[in-house]
């Protein structure tokens, strides 16, 4: 019945159908979210006994004054600004090249996708060698003698390189899917309309890829904000030399697991969450505002 009106019975039935997923989501997503949000306000708290003796904003005040946290925020922002545009541009570029060649394209596709499915630890081992000051590949290629991983001036760059490289494969596959979805007629029309190869790229390829670009960008922003395991593996369980690669997520880890400052860790998690919400919110707001240019429709 298409015109059936919702009744108490039908609503209950619907709830019953939804129940498994709802229970899973509430237990594993909503409840931890709420409890860590609450924990961030516990100022006198015994984690093991779960006793809360006082609540307040002291943990946030602590973060506000804590130079390590400031460093973590700054490093995270630098990291995001370094990784996101590079990843998007590089993966788009490589996807375009792969789309041009037919020969061996699936071979290259696999090559680029491999890092995504390889364990972080294995990747870090390889990069440790590449970045090594004395006999590393990178220094051999550049002819320099940079201690990429132990010099605080370079270690964040090193981390950015590894993360960009790791993210490429997945984004290339997404871009290739996007490119495959562009109807060849648009290129033919543009060609007949007198568009050069570059003009075809800017007037057909780019606008048509806009939705997938938005997806990739937002996804990259979120995952870059949450970067942790690459740091842990690349710098031997440290946040880089002299905390040069201390990110917000690493700070959270350190406060929670190493220092046992559970409420401070929770508070830094809340701040990280707010950062991500604001930045992805801004991104979506921007894309919504310009949606007509991007998707060719008002939303």
């Amino acid at each position: 019945m298409i015109n059936a009106k919702p009744t108490l019975k039908s609503t209950l039935k619907a709830l019953l159908y939804l129940a498994p997923l709802l229970i899973v989501t509430i237990t594993f997503t909503i409840w931890p979210l709420i409890s860590s949000f609450l924990m961030s306000f516990y100022t006198k708290y015994n984690y093991f006994t779960n006793q809360v003796k006082a609540m307040g904003g002291a943990n946030f005040a602590y973060l506000w004054q804590n130079p390590d946290f400031h460093l973590a925020v700054r490093n995270t922002l630098v990291f995001v600004i370094g990784v996101v545009p590079l990843t998007v541009i590089l993966s788009l570029g490589i996807a375009l090249l792969l789309n041009q060649i037919n020969w061996l394209s699936s071979f290259f596709r696999t090559i680029y996708f491999l890092p995504f499915v390889t364990s972080t630890v294995a990747i870090s081992l390889v990069w440790n060698w590449i970045f090594h000051q004395d006999n590393g590949l990178l220094n051999a290629l550049l002819g320099g003698s940079v201690d990429w991983l132990n010099d605080p001036h370079y270690s964040l760059t090193a981390l950015i390189i590894v993360c960009v490289w790791r993210g490429l494969g997945f984004n290339i596959v997404l871009f290739l899917a996007g490119l495959n979805n562009i109807d060849n007629h648009y290129y033919q029309a543009a060609k007949l309309d007198g568009a050069s190869a570059w003009q075809q790229f800017t007037n057909v390829t780019l606008p048509m890829l806009a939705p997938i670009t938005v997806l990739i960008t937002v996804n990259e922003i979120i995952s870059s904000f949450k970067v942790f395991d690459q740091i842990y593996a690349l710098f031997h369980g440290q946040a880089g030399p002299a905390n040069a690669d201390l990110t917000m997520m690493y700070y959270l880890y350190q406060k929670f697991y190493v220092e046992g400052q559970y409420p401070v860790a929770a508070a830094s998690g809340v701040v990280l969450f707010i950062f991500i919400v604001i930045i992805t919110g801004l991104a979506f707001w921007y894309f919504q505002r310009h949606s007509i240019k991007i998707w060719g429709r008002r939303s």
Binding site: P241, A242, G260
Partner: peptide, 18 residues
């Protein structure tokens, strides 16, 4: 102790790396 150890580690890193 662990919190102190992290702080000491950071100070020594400053001495070494910076």
């Amino acid at each position: 102790y662990n919190q102190y150890l992290v702080a000491v580690g950071k100070s020594f890193d400053e001495m070494t790396a910076n």
